[in-house]
Design a protein around this nucleic acid. Structure first.
Lengths: 108, 108
DNA sequence: AACTTATATAACCACCATATTATATAAGTG
DNA sequence: CACTTATATAATATGGTGGTTATATAAGTT
């Protein structure tokens, strides 16, 4: 499933928003989503599965809990696609500013 | 239709890519898309309609032609949503670099 | 006016994404 | 071990997206 298709679903976008706050157990995510979207537990679980399988989220087990965390790798892809269009609204930094920025980066 | 749903379709993404090169008549777009995706003229026309109605493209009439151009407004929305996550991979410019960049901007 | 070209719309259909209910699994608890 | 809790999977139903063919519209051309 293409990254954009994954992001096409509002439930999945919301889950990702929850996960940027930090990792959360499936149950926690399910609780919030069920309140906001009124869907069943399996529905949320299926969305989590899609996020896992498409690389947007990682899981680790903690006892009976499954702890989810965001993985931004596919979001970077999306960002890269947008890059093509960004020229239309983003003022570009000039070379001096870029130079300074990169030196500061090197310094840590 | 939400911006992310619009971008969920590969044909529509490709159309947008064509339109960043500059405006194109419907026929031109249709020709390219039909080659790459093997779908009918009405199918392409329907995608163009979705792009119009969701604000991704604008049209003007030139005789019998409909000339399409990209409108990045909804893409900015998408970009804004991504902003939340960008912190995870993008090194931030420090304040000095930002200051210099903005002064250069003012200068033109 | 008849015909062609460019494009959109209408009507319809098929498939797939996402929901549901029911159930499985796996880890804690008394 | 029986029971509960946390979560995932299976099986199935359904609505909507995106395709098709047929047709309308509107502008050029002869």
């Amino acid at each position: 499933m293409h990254a954009f298709d994954v992001l096409g679903d509002p439930v999945r976008r919301r889950i990702l928003e929850l996960l940027i706050e930090g990792e959360h157990a499936s149950g926690k995510v399910t609780h919030v989503i069920r309140q906001e979207f009124a869907i069943s537990q399996p529905a949320v679980s299926q969305h989590l599965k899609i996020l896992r399988e498409s690389g947007f989220a990682t899981v680790r087990t903690d006892g009976t809990r499954r702890i989810y965390a965001v993985d931004v790798t596919p979001l970077k892809e999306v960002d890269a696609w947008l890059e093509m269009f960004r020229q239309f609204w983003e003022p570009k930094l000039n070379s001096l500013a870029v130079e300074i920025a990169s030196r500061k980066e090197e310094q840590g």
